[in-house]
């Protein structure tokens, strides 16, 4: 009866049924189950504008280079505070329209950074617009494509009040008398990127990273040494990760968008109070520059001290080093201040 060699009907039927059965076990059933998740408390739906931005994200093929998944391994801790869980995708992964299915956001390649938490890491609209118009205006070594078609060059006189103007740095600037403004699409895409923030898990729930060996060892050493010096933290490296996209690796900033740190009176001030407060609370005092986000939630006291010391001693700056203790005191002071 089961003579596959001579009976083509049995052969084809067996191959068909075998494959369908296995497919149900390994794909259809798990997929069906994975749909059954609850949103996290505090998780918000995408707004209309953000959803349009998500559609643009798919249209331009951003997923080819950017992942949106924090894996449960130590090295992915850079991209989020906790590993991604199914609930994280609940609002962004529904069918886009009748022609197009739910977007594939997890990605398979990280040619560019992971974007799970980009909205928290880089909340500045000005930065995102510059970066989309030409990534090399803010990140010199970037190989990301430019998206000039999301922007429009107009006569400077015809710029309306509700237009969002993009101030280009030297070398990229428009010809005189003309101004670059962001089209609606650019603003939608940026709105979507700004909305990408990891939601904190409700109290008591913990998702842990699988630690790397090095980490375990250094932590062990720390315990042994008692109160550890901050020397384990590399200020230059942290600066690169958290600050360099705006202030640049050489500390010179981007003219018209992000102020230089090299030679800055605030950085070189012997009294570090204002500098540390800016890092903790953010800064928006100068109209010619984009506003800076607060870093109090993202960086520890030791990390802030390490970064500040790197800034205070690099690029010709020469100010006395500060300690973790000073940062801790200022943080306490800032937190006890009534919010305005």
């Amino acid at each position: 009866m089961f003579d596959f060699h001579k009976n083509h009907k049995i052969l084809v039927l067996a191959a068909f049924l075998g494959f369908v059965t296995l497919s149900f076990i390994v794909a259809v059933f798990p997929a069906y189950q994975m749909q059954d998740v609850e949103p996290l408390p505090g998780q918000v739906q995408l707004t209309e504008n953000e959803r349009k931005g998500l559609n643009l994200y798919i249209k331009e093929g951003c997923v080819a280079c950017h992942t949106q998944q924090v894996r449960n391994i130590e090295m992915d801790n850079t991209w989020g505070d906790r590993p991604s869980i199914p609930s994280d995708y609940i609002f962004s992964k529904e069918r886009m329209d009748i022609w197009r299915q739910s977007p594939s956001l997890l990605g398979s390649e990280r040619t560019g950074p992971d974007l799970t938490d980009i909205g928290r890491r880089q909340p500045s609209e000005a930065w995102h617009l510059l970066h989309l118009y030409n990534p090399r205006t803010v990140v010199g070594a970037s190989i990301m494509p430019s998206y000039p078609w999301l922007f429009k060059e107009v006569e400077s006189g015809s710029v309306k009040e509700n237009n969002v103007v993009v101030n280009l740095p030297e070398g990229y600037a428009t010809s005189s008398g003309r101004t670059l403004i962001a089209k609606e699409e650019a603003l939608q895409l940026v709105a979507y990127l700004q909305s990408l923030k990891q939601v904190k898990l409700p109290d008591g729930q913990v998702e842990e990273f699988i630690p790397a060996l090095k980490q375990i060892q250094t932590e062990g050493n720390k315990v042994n040494q008692g109160s550890a010096s901050a020397s384990g933290i590399n200020g230059a490296q942290l600066y690169k990760q958290a600050c360099a996209v705006c202030h640049q690796d050489n500390g010179k900033g981007v003219a018209g968008a992000f102020p230089p740190l090299a030679g800055s009176p605030i950085v070189n001030d012997v009294d570090p109070e204002l500098m540390i407060r800016i890092i903790l609370q953010g800064y928006d005092a100068r109209s010619e520059y984009a506003s800076m986000q607060p870093f109090a939630d993202q960086l520890s006291d030791a990390e802030i001290a390490a970064i500040a010391n790197h800034e205070r001693t690099s690029w010709g700056n020469n100010a006395p080093e500060i300690t973790e203790e000073e940062v801790r005191k200022l943080r306490e002071f800032v937190e006890n201040q009534p919010s305005n």
């Binding site: 794909a27 259809v28 798990p30 997929a31 069906y32 189950q33 994975m34 749909q35 059954d36 998740v37 199914p86 995708y89 609940i90 992964k93 529904e94 069918r95 299915q101 739910s102 977007p103 594939s104 997890l106």
Partner: peptide, 10 residues
């Protein structure tokens, strides 16, 4: 079966 992470399994 493709909403949420179902899409990723598929």
């Amino acid at each position: 079966f493709q909403d949420g992470l179902g899409e990723t399994v598929i």
